[in-house]
Design a protein around this nucleic acid. Sequence first.
DNA 1: ACGAAAACCTACCACACCGTTAGTTTTCGT
DNA 2: ACGAAAACTAACGGTGTGGTAGGTTTTCGT
Lengths: 210, 210
Amino acid sequence: MTETALSTAEASVGRARGSYAKTESRRREILAAAIDVFSTSGYRSGSMQEIADKIGITKAGLLHHFRSKEALLEAVLTLRDAESWATAGIVTDNGRATLDGIIRLVQHNASVPGLVALHAVLSSESTDPTHPAHAYFQQRYNWLRDVGFQAFSDLQRQGKLREGVAASSAARQLIALLDGLQVQWLLDKTSVDMTAEVKTYLNALTTERF
Amino acid sequence: MTETALSTAEASVGRARGSYAKTESRRREILAAAIDVFSTSGYRSGSMQEIADKIGITKAGLLHHFRSKEALLEAVLTLRDAESWATAGIVTDNGRATLDGIIRLVQHNASVPGLVALHAVLSSESTDPTHPAHAYFQQRYNWLRDVGFQAFSDLQRQGKLREGVAASSAARQLIALLDGLQVQWLLDKTSVDMTAEVKTYLNALTTERF
DNA sequence: ACGAAAACCTACCACACCGTTAGTTTTCGT
DNA sequence: ACGAAAACTAACGGTGTGGTAGGTTTTCGT
């Protein structure tokens, strides 16, 4: 039996057990190519072949690093999440800081249309319950609404929310606004200044100045 | 493979010259199935075979009614447009009426998740410049922004827009809000009341009561 | 009731898809 | 410098794709 009978939790997300020096950089290369392809063609229409071609390896070579297309998608989503939270710097106990972080994220997004397209395409594609990322995006939006709610609640506690504005509603609307602006922006970069629009919105329903 | 722009529809959307009694109903049947498939799988991943199966005919039989997948997409988009404007009842010379029409449309949309999904999936999919519906959606959003702008401008002329609110900005934001709410709603129908959210937004930046 | 056109169907084409198998080359700890 | 594992490649299997070719059935004006 070639089994090592080692059922440790090491199986987490396709990470190989032992690897060489260039392994990490290759994986990053693959992820970058995958983001490129998934963001223009979506997950379902994007092909492993195209991703492999983009970095000059074989489809089989690609599948050596990621066991399946689905595993690759998972890695892409995880990576993007980590990067987003890093540039946003979410702080749950300070509403103003959280909203500033979101503005910073929007501003940053304007320089990486590929990542924006990735989110726009995947989030709507995952609307289908059979999509591999369906549960992921459900969770994500739940979490996002909660973060927004806490941020606006914090402002409300300080009397900085205008009258008649509910924190939960503001959270849902802000997230919707972000997503919707992205589509218009992706279709025509000159049609919308995402950052300006978000600031205008926040200025309209708080007494703060963003 | 090579995805070109939608043809400029010379022969009024693939309509056959002579036809029998059941032809029209068959075409409607096909369009309904196509909407069903495109809205859950998108245009690129949705297949002619699945559409044909759904109404119990052959792929070749389907292609007899619509010369290509692209022609079918064009017909679907045209149909959906017509229906939307019908239920919204856009009137360009009355801002309040236009916004009421939009609210009516949002309310109606909540009863046809398939059509909502169709728009959400296709609009973000068409973000890719090589997508057959790319130009269509670019035009559509331009037109939409203009309709919104005129509506808010009309209100502004009557002093019904709150101070500091620009008509053009309000238009962009309202459209973004509509699109964004749809994604959240499609992922979890209980997470968002689209109509209520739109009304809240409109109440916040006008002195009208929606 | 005839016949032309519409409405289908079966069979096929050339290609693309994801993933596997079995082998070869490269890395690198020992 | 040996050898085991990682990092690949070439080839292929099985399925699905949009679209075509050519035949058969159904419709329906005349």
